[in-house]
Structure formats: structure tokens, C-alpha cells
């Protein structure tokens, strides 16, 4: 186990290094640069700005400096947020996104597993169809629309109640998180429901279920210990990257609900070509992703012992 973890760690570091390098190259290959602004500056000032951000050095040297700083855990200073450290940006905004993401993923996973199981039991009957319509609507309508409608619903409910049950937007308490996380998780919920349904249908007819039945196990035990446990594997596979994506990709929800998450920095950084923020967030995201994928793989092994045996062997 320890050996396996060490190996994963080594691979993780390598992956992150690749990500950092590819992003660095890509970023510098794209036209434009972070020092451009709406109102043009004189060449003299530009030269000093370049000096300040180290852009005057040869590209290889910049790369070297960047990697060295990254090893020290320093992502540098943002180009667009004056005097603000990229480390601070991540440290301040990632927890917000992560909290929202965890809530969203949490309910989406539980809901997806549950709804998927139900629909598989009612295959090709009305609960199944009802759900498929919901799922289709859920993925065919941009999340912006759900977020807007969600916010309007809050307004309507508050007006109807006569007091503020939920805040319209903002951040700070549990009540601020409920609707945004519900909306953020919709897509994943829909996906997991469908995935779970398919996977359940596969499993229901598997030989070991038949064997279990033949053994005379209670249907409850079969359902929980055999069906659910086997069917949940694909869900876990997609969960790792999904957590990583959702905790950083909630841009639209963050925008509409005025939530200070990391999502907007991801989107803005590329548009503004904020080199340090692009590098910092990408590398951080990469590391987070590697961690999540590793966790998912470990979980996978825990749930399906056969896979674990294979790995160790």
C-alpha cells in the first residue's frame, strides 16, 4: 500500500510538472501579453513593468525562475490584481469554491445513486421516463438559466412568506449555500443518475447476483451489499475529476449569486492573460485533480477488492 502511494506521489509530481510546463509554453505562445491595457503606456514604462515582472528575461530563464519558485510554493504576484499574491488568491477563494463544490457533489452523488437505483428498478415505466425528461432538460438548458430562475424563485418565495427565508445572493452563512449548490450539482446529478441506472441494469443480471439469490440471501442484503456496491463503481470513476471540475468551474453560479469563489479567477485569468494567476491556478488545479483521482482510485480498490488484489500483484 505504502509502496503504491509512493509511486502515485512520484507520478503526481511528474504530472504536475508536465502541466506547469505545457501551460507555461501555451501561455507564452498565445498572442498578447498581460501588460497590455485599454489605455496604452509608453515604451519606457512598459520596459519597467517588464522588468518588475521579470518578463524582460529570456524565456528559458523565466521558466527556470518560475519552476524554482513553484517548488518553494510561491506562485508570484498577480498582474491584474495589483500587489496581490497568487497564493493568497488561491488560499482565499479556493475554500469557498470547495465548500460549494463539496455540497453540490455530496447531494448530487447521493441523489444520483438513489435516483439511478430507483429508475433502474422502474425501467421503462413512468418514473423512468419522468426522470429522463428531467435529466434531458437539466443538461439541455444552460446553467445560467437555472441560476437565474433559482434566484427569481428565492425572491418569489421570500415575497410570499413576507420575510427573507433565503438570501438572494452573497456569501457567509449556510443559507447562502443552499440554492447555489443545488444548481451547481444539477448537471452532475443528472449524469450520475443516468450512469447509475445503466450500471445497475448491468449488475442486476450478473451471475453473482443470481448466485446470491440462489444462496437465499435476503433481497435487502443483495441490494446493498452486491448490487449497489458493484453498480457504484463507474460513479466513483467519474467522481474524482468531477469534484475537481466542480470546485473550480462554478463560474456562472458564482457570478449570479455573488459568491467569492475561485471560478471567476480561472475564467478571467485567461482572458486577461494574467500569467501568474493562470500558472498558479492551473498548477493548483492539476495538483488537486491528481489528488482526487488518486483518492477515487483508492476508493475503487476499497469497494472492489478484486481490483486491489490486481494492483498489488
Amino acid at each position: 500500500m505504502l509502496h503504491y502511494l509512493m509511486k502515485r506521489l512520484a507520478f503526481g509530481v511528474l504530472t504536475i510538472w508536465f502541466i506547469a510546463t505545457a501551460t507555461f509554453v501555451g501561455m507564452h505562445a498565445v498572442p498578447g501579453d498581460p501588460l497590455m491595457s485599454d489605455k496604452a503606456v509608453s515604451p519606457e514604462i512598459r520596459k519597467h513593468l517588464e522588468q518588475r515582472y521579470g518578463l524582460d528575461k529570456p524565456i528559458m530563464q523565466q521558466y527556470q525562475i518560475y519552476i524554482m519558485n513553484m517548488l518553494k510554493g510561491d506562485f508570484g504576484i498577480s498582474f491584474t490584481q495589483q500587489n496581490r499574491r497568487v497564493n493568497d488568491i488561491i488560499a482565499e477563494h479556493f475554500p469557498v469554491s470547495a465548500l460549494l463544490g463539496v455540497l453540490a457533489i455530496g447531494y448530487a452523488t447521493l441523489g444520483g445513486i438513489m435516483l439511478g437505483a430507483i429508475t433502474s428498478l422502474y425501467r421503462n415505466r413512468w418514473p423512468d421516463y419522468l426522470l429522463i425528461v428531467f435529466v434531458v432538460l437539466g443538461i439541455s438548458i444552460p446553467s445560467f438559466v437555472f441560476a437565474s430562475i433559482g434566484q427569481l424563485m428565492i425572491l418569489k418565495v421570500n415575497a410570499w412568506l413576507g420575510f427573507q427565508l433565503l438570501p438572494v445572493a452573497g456569501w457567509g452563512s449556510i443559507s447562502h449555500m443552499i440554492v447555489p449548490s443545488l444548481i451547481l450539482g444539477l448537471g452532475i446529478l443528472a449524469y450520475l443518475t443516468r450512469l447509475m441506472r445503466s450500471s445497475m441494469l448491468e449488475v442486476i443480471h450478473a451471475d453473482y447476483i443470481r448466485t446470491a439469490r440462489a444462496k437465499g440471501l435476503s433481497s435487502q442484503r443483495i441490494f446493498y451489499r452486491h448490487q449497489l456496491r458493484n453498480a457504484v463503481l463507474p460513479v466513483i470513476t467519474v467522481l474524482g475529476p468531477a469534484i475537481a471540475a466542480i470546485t473550480t468551474g462554478g463560474f456562472v453560479v458564482e457570478l449570479i449569486f455573488a459568491i467569492p469563489g475561485l471560478g471567476r479567477y480561472f475564467v478571467q485569468a485567461v482572458q486577461q492573460l494574467d500569467y501568474t494567476v493562470i500558472m498558479g491556478t492551473t498548477v493548483f488545479y492539476g495538483a488537486f485533480l491528481v489528488l482526487m483521482v488518486t483518492l477515487a482510485d483508492l476508493l475503487y480498490g476499497l469497494i472492489d477488492p478484486r481490483i486491489r488484489i490486481q494492483k498489488v500483484a
Binding site: 504530472t15 475537481a244 485567461v270 491528481v290 483521482v293
Partner: peptide, 12 residues
Amino acid sequence: ADFVIALPFLLF
């Protein structure tokens, strides 16, 4: 595969 997922989509 992990490496590819982590690349910033818009930039690339």
C-alpha cells in the same frame, strides 16, 4: 490522461 484533463481549456 490526468495531465490532459488539467490543461486550461480556454488557453489551449
